[in-house]
Design a protein around this nucleic acid. Structure first.
Lengths: 217, 217, 217, 217
DNA sequence: GATGAATGAGCATTCATTCAT
DNA sequence: GATGAATGAATGCTCATTCAT
């Protein structure tokens, strides 16, 4: 019967969806209040369940935290597609750098994935070293992409000669800081809207990388 | 007697130094483990006293935290001296920017003052909004300096026209990120020593700001 | 069809056998870990069902415990047959005592019925007073048999005059202690195999009861 | 001043006495309700303190249980004195056996030490194997004493030849069972006062051990 | 009848805070 | 001023019990 069918479907969909509902609620609260200050009661309440229910899906508060972080890393996986696109890219290196950076911002900088950065930094030093995990899974991905683009620009004479690794870190820093401030101050960097920030940022980095200008001194 | 005299001296010195010994111990632990995960017992133990003693100097754990942050802000006060120095500065704006940035790094980026940034970001969102306090006391100071220098450079035709506020934030970001990583990953950014990082950073920013080059597009 | 027939048979047999399968699993675990430390999940798992299923047959954990104990008392019912047999017995009282004791051991002392003693003693003091129930249903049965045999021996001049009730308790004690040790230490009394224990025990009791010897003092 | 002196004394005496006050309360409740069913709140309440106070003296509920058992074993240490006394004893072996048994009963069978037997049997099978510990510390001590006395009697021709180890266990059983029943049924074995029980018990054992009677068959 | 997801009351444990000494 | 024993509220975790399917 349709009733039974729907019933089972609802139940099953619930069961399947629960874990991510729970981690979503947990992520929000962990970011808002920090790991230690977040009570399981609060997480459960925000997810519309009861504390005990959490233990049907996660062994402990720490296990829940792990799941939250791991789930937050998933979007960053899409960055790996860029590796092939860079090889086939036909346009100029400045254009490519623009595209890569804006896509990184779209994927990582927006939504709750941004708060995850603040979270793992806050809880760095705990048993499971999530700062390293996050660094390797997200930051290092972005760094690698930037290095590849910068190297391409150097090879094509579009960028001046730089230490690609150092510069990749430096170029990424303003993106990450922006993410951090937005989740720490609550409402973006005061006085500078994101759009203008990104525009000035891209201009500054591209100008700084461009070859063919006289040296600074 | 010499013994008594020494005793009193030690006692007196101790008594006066106590509060800062306590906040120093607290700062270390707050940075290492976060506010919530740090027990007063641990702080007292590291300071060589007993938990109850903390309450002779601070009303509560939160009051201790406040004192820790406030004390950490003190070094940043020296930044205010720069305001006058900028007005009197005789050299080029790129040189001035270099000096200001390196001094900011010396004052804020080194020592435990660096950990403080990570700490206030971690605990952002708690009752007392330290992220804002820290932002206003330290970051905003630095931002203002940078804005002044950039404006000077623009006025003198040494820097191209930019949004000074946005660019000041962007220029500061790599410094702050470096501080954060050093205290979150434990041991600096892997693969890029601080000295090279700073050198490439200055070069990139100054190249990006320099006037007289054709626009990026 | 045979398949269906077998299926129904199996189903039917299962259905009827379920309660005792459940109590059997529960008995084992209650003895191993104690009442409170045994989780319904464990019992269900050992019985090959799911926790909720237990509630189809028992109202609560305590009701299950009650059923376990009551079921464990059943074998002891066979002791009642002895009442008639004693009346008709033709041999000597020492021989009769031997037979009664060895049968008691066979019925009560072996198998899981032995563990039941340890169990009810462990949980004595709970709401339902199983120590009394077990005492009345099993121990008192044995005591009564022993009293009858001892009284017969006294009447026939084979045993010396004793307080039959006290002596019955005393005679039974070594049997019960042996049962307890076997289930508490895991592997019988260290150093004394059951067979030798029983032989020496019977000899000591019969020697102690025998009439016709000079008093101890 | 006297006030201060008394104050310190009271405080110190409290501090020193606390652990044993707590274990005493815990022992009572563990015996009454079993380990798992006893809440720390109850123990604290009975000791006149608050739950948290328990953790000033014991790391966990299990640590408290361990302390309770270990403390309960102390009285049994006095049994070791008997080893020398047996060697020097001048009287008959039956008299010696009487004395040893009555002293064992006085030391182990009375007071809360008796409940300890029930307790360790109940909790046998848990991580720390207290049944073995108790067996070795208390029961085995008594067994050894009995074996020594029985061997002495056999050597002097006062007792018939028996397996000393088996018989020692058997002789001890009625004492232990009596202890167990008293703590499981609440109020002694129904119908047989302790005094008569012990008298009949001694008579039965000594008669059973005495040499010079014809064998049972 | 059987399942297993969900519940919620109960308990062990932690830790900031107090206060008599 | 300094101590440390004692407190009690808070919280992670468990598990018997229920109920929709």
């Amino acid at each position: 019967m349709a009733g039974e069918f729907l019933g089972k479907t609802v139940r099953r969909r619930r069961k399947d969806a629960r874990p991510s509902e729970l981690t979503a609620a947990a992520l929000q609260l962990f970011i808002e209040k920090g790991y230690a200050a977040t009570r399981l009661d609060d997480i459960a309440a925000r997810a519309g369940v009861v504390k005990g229910t959490l233990y049907l899906y996660f062994d402990s508060k720490e296990a829940l935290f792990n799941a939250v972080v791991r789930e937050g890393l998933v979007p960053a996986l899409s960055l790996s597609e860029w590796k092939e696109r860079i090889a086939d890219y036909a346009g100029s290196s400045p254009d490519l750098l623009r595209e890569v950076i804006l896509d990184f911002w779209r994927v990582v900088g927006s939504g709750q994935a941004g708060g995850l950065l603040k979270l793992v930094l806050s809880e760095a030093g705990n048993s499971s070293d999530f700062a390293h995990i996050y660094h390797d899974a997200v930051i290092a991905q972005g760094i690698d992409l930037l290095r590849a683009v910068i190297a391409r620009g150097m090879a094509r004479g579009e960028f001046r000669a730089v230490d690609t690794e150092a510069v990749a870190h430096i170029v990424m820093a303003p993106l990450l800081m922006r993410m951090i401030w937005e989740h720490s101050l609550g409402c973006g960097v005061p006085g500078v809207p994101t759009k203008r920030y990104l525009a000035e940022y891209l201009e500054l980095m591209l100008s700084g990388l461009r070859s063919g200008c006289s040296p600074n001194r």
